[in-house]
Deep mutational scan, measured.
Amino acid sequence: MASQGTKRSYEQMETDGERQNATEIRASVGKMIDGIGRFYIQMCTELKLSDYEGRLIQNSLTIERMVLSAFDERRNKYLEEHPSAGKDPKKTGGPIYKRVDRKWMRELVLYDKEEIRRIWRQANNGDDATAGLTHMMIWHSNLNDTTYQRTRALVRTGMDPRMCSLMQGSTLPRRSGAAGAAVKGVGTMVMELIRMIKRGINDRNFWRGENGRKTRSAYERMCNILKGKFQTAAQRAMMDQVRESRNPGNAEIEDLIFLARSALILRGSVAHKSCLPACVYGPAVASGYDFEKEGYSLVGIDPFKLLQNSQVYSLIRPNENPAHKSQLVWMACNSAAFEDLRVLSFIRGTKVSPRGKLSTRGVQIASNENMDAMESSTLELRSRYWAIRTRSGGNTNQQRASAGQISVQPAFSVQRNLPFDKPTIMAAFTGNTEGRTSDMRAEIIRMMEGAKPEEMSFQGRGVFELSDERAANPIVPSFDMSNEGSYFFGDNAEEYDN
């Protein structure tokens, strides 16, 4: 993207840094990872977990959730003011799984939030270390993106479920800051804005008074975040219109849905970061690795190297396929839920299948599930090659597409044709070009129609051997075009429920 120079890199967003050079960025990201790792080690000690239990991804998720809940100030305040039966607002906890007599047992633990905050700050040299908290939120978000298709949420806001490739980060909490905003897809931002506008339509006082002023500035800020994701002048001009509207209503909703559809071809720039579970960072720190000293990046080879040398386990339900569970977590670790499966298959070195073909449910185990038949197995999170994460949407291309997802959002900077089903997408653009945004709409449609099938995206960008740390010898991959490109292809993934 041309304006790259004016933006802070995501590592800076990730670490609240002012302008830093590459070495400083690597050190501050490393410091953040160190903090998460030290916190995780301490929690495993508190909970008396064995090494194996500490490497269980379900335990990692519970521990991450506990610290996120302990620092969720708004919710904590709300819980104190609106006490609900049987919930102690000062405590947080969740299921911890232990191996007892050759069987997995679930144990519900409860801790004072104050105590968890103390352990977290102690692991982070006394700081609140917001960057580390956001990092864990993005890992949870990436896992949700890989596990669930947001059909219901899309339909509720009037969008087409086939636009799911635009929904990265749709389950990120509001408090995820600049680093969170960077990884949100165009569809996620559109959905947040539509929800806001709908509230304004239904509630006369939404934009009024002292609160209304705050609401208005939040609305304009979200519009600017979305505008910054678009790469064409016409899309940005249309966002200006939406932002400046005196009284946002149905016309703005129409414009936003139009823009979301246009992003299936004229893709937005959305950041991709490899955020790993805390149970990967903990053992690495415990083994003596100093992330701050060595430096770390979320968008280069580092996460690949770390996963190459990590042992992570997962509980497996009786009829689940461990290899499929591994694929789910591998995609989440690489922030690749909406990437082209052919690119992923090449990088991973084994075939990556669409969601609907995987015999696996989510990673988390519900409290009512029976533990008797639970097994555990090693997650295979290694890769054959590594590639640089991208934040450009890439230019655009036609490809055989599917009944489910009709476009992709690249996660890796790797040369390819970008699949999208042009006739299906263009069919949504018939007729409606009147109104105050008509010239911009016409211009956007013209650009979409001009998108050429034979153009290559990320020209000359390749993948790298894991021994090639400096990215000196790019390998331009070859793809098996007979395979499906979309992950949520004609899909039956479970729906995400809060």
Rank of each mutant, 00 (worst) to 15 (best):
S3L: 15
Q4S: 14
G5N: 11
G5A: 15
T6G: 00
S9A: 15
S9Q: 09
Q12W: 05
M13D: 15
M13N: 10
E14G: 02
T15L: 15
T15R: 00
D16K: 01
D16C: 04
E18Y: 12
N21D: 03
E24H: 11
I25Q: 15
R26K: 15
A27F: 00
S28N: 14
V29Y: 02
G30I: 00
G30W: 08
M32P: 07
D34Y: 07
D34G: 10
G35E: 03
G35K: 08
G37P: 10
F39P: 08
F39L: 06
Y40G: 03
I41D: 10
I41S: 15
T45G: 05
T45H: 03
K48T: 14
D51F: 00
D51Y: 00
D51K: 00
Y52I: 04
E53V: 03
R55I: 09
R55T: 07
I57V: 15
N59H: 12
N59Y: 01
N59G: 15
N59M: 07
S60R: 10
L61V: 15
T62N: 15
R65P: 11
V67A: 14
S69M: 08
F71S: 10
D72W: 14
N76V: 04
K77Q: 11
L79V: 12
E81P: 02
H82Y: 13
P83I: 07
P89L: 12
K91D: 04
K91H: 05
K91P: 04
G93F: 09
G94N: 11
I96G: 02
I96A: 06
D101W: 01
R102V: 02
R102Q: 03
K103Y: 01
K103D: 03
W104Q: 02
W104H: 03
M105S: 09
E107T: 08
E107K: 07
L108P: 14
D112Q: 03
D112W: 07
E114F: 13
E114P: 04
E115C: 05
E115R: 11
R117T: 11
I119L: 09
I119Q: 11
W120S: 05
W120P: 07
R121H: 12
N124P: 10
N125M: 12
N125Q: 13
G126M: 13
G126K: 03
D127G: 12
D127Q: 14
D127E: 11
D128E: 07
A129E: 07
A129K: 15
A131P: 15
L143M: 11
N144P: 07
N144L: 02
T147S: 02
Y148P: 11
Q149F: 08
Q149R: 14
R150I: 03
T151N: 03
R152S: 07
A153D: 05
V155D: 09
R156Y: 08
M159T: 02
P161G: 14
S165M: 08
L166N: 03
G169Q: 05
T171Y: 03
T171L: 09
P173G: 06
R175V: 05
R175W: 10
G177E: 12
A179N: 06
A181C: 10
G185I: 02
G187H: 02
M189P: 05
E192G: 10
R195F: 07
M196Q: 13
G200S: 08
G200L: 08
G200N: 07
I201R: 00
N205C: 14
F206N: 11
F206D: 01
R208T: 04
G209S: 10
E210A: 05
G212L: 12
T215N: 12
T215Q: 14
R216A: 09
R216C: 03
S217W: 09
M222G: 14
M222A: 15
M222S: 14
C223H: 09
N224D: 10
L226D: 10
L226C: 09
G228I: 06
K229P: 09
K229R: 03
K229L: 05
Q231M: 13
T232R: 15
T232Q: 10
R236N: 06
R236K: 15
R236E: 12
A237K: 03
A237S: 15
M238F: 04
M238N: 12
V242M: 15
V242Y: 09
R243D: 11
R243W: 04
E244G: 12
E244N: 13
S245F: 03
G249D: 10
G249A: 10
N250S: 12
A251H: 05
A251N: 08
E254A: 07
E254P: 06
F258S: 01
F258L: 11
A260K: 03
A260I: 05
R261D: 08
R261T: 07
S262H: 07
S262F: 05
L264R: 01
I265V: 15
L266M: 09
S269Y: 02
V270F: 04
A271F: 10
K273M: 07
L276M: 15
A278M: 12
C279A: 13
P283V: 11
P283K: 10
P283F: 00
S287R: 15
G288P: 03
G288Y: 04
Y289I: 14
D290S: 07
F291P: 06
G295L: 04
L298P: 05
V299Q: 05
G300T: 02
P303L: 02
L306V: 06
L307T: 12
S310L: 06
V312F: 12
S314F: 08
L315S: 04
N319Y: 00
N319I: 06
E320Q: 05
H324M: 03
S326Q: 10
Q327C: 06
Q327L: 15
L328M: 15
V329G: 06
V329Q: 03
W330E: 02
M331I: 13
S335C: 15
F338W: 10
F338G: 12
E339P: 06
L341G: 03
V343N: 01
L344Y: 09
F346N: 10
I347A: 14
R348K: 13
R348Q: 11
R348F: 04
R348G: 06
T350K: 08
V352K: 14
V352W: 06
S353D: 02
R355F: 08
R355I: 10
G356H: 10
K357I: 09
L358E: 09
S359H: 12
G362W: 09
Q364G: 05
Q364V: 12
I365H: 07
I365E: 06
S367Y: 08
N368W: 01
N368F: 06
M371I: 15
D372R: 04
A373C: 08
M374K: 10
M374S: 02
E375M: 03
E375S: 06
S376L: 04
T378E: 04
T378G: 08
L379F: 11
L379C: 14
S383T: 15
S383Y: 04
S383F: 01
R384F: 08
R384D: 00
Y385I: 05
W386Y: 12
G394N: 10
G394T: 00
N395F: 08
N395V: 03
N395K: 12
Q399D: 04
Q399A: 11
R400S: 07
R400I: 04
S402W: 00
S402H: 15
G404P: 04
S407L: 09
P410N: 07
F412C: 08
S413T: 10
V414S: 02
R416C: 11
L418G: 00
D421A: 15
K422N: 13
T424Q: 12
T424E: 12
T424F: 02
M426N: 11
A428L: 03
A428F: 14
T430H: 01
T430E: 00
G431N: 08
N432C: 14
R436D: 11
R436E: 11
R436K: 10
D439G: 01
I444Y: 04
I445N: 03
R446T: 14
M447W: 08
E449I: 02
G450I: 11
A451V: 10
K452P: 10
G460L: 14
R461E: 12
G462Y: 09
V463S: 06
F464I: 00
F464Q: 02
S467T: 10
D468M: 03
D468K: 01
E469C: 02
E469L: 12
R470L: 05
R470N: 01
N473F: 15
N473I: 09
N473E: 00
P474W: 03
F479I: 15
F479N: 06
M481I: 05
N483L: 14
G490Y: 06
D491H: 04
N492C: 12
E495K: 14
E495C: 03
Y496H: 02
D497V: 15
D497W: 01
N498E: 04
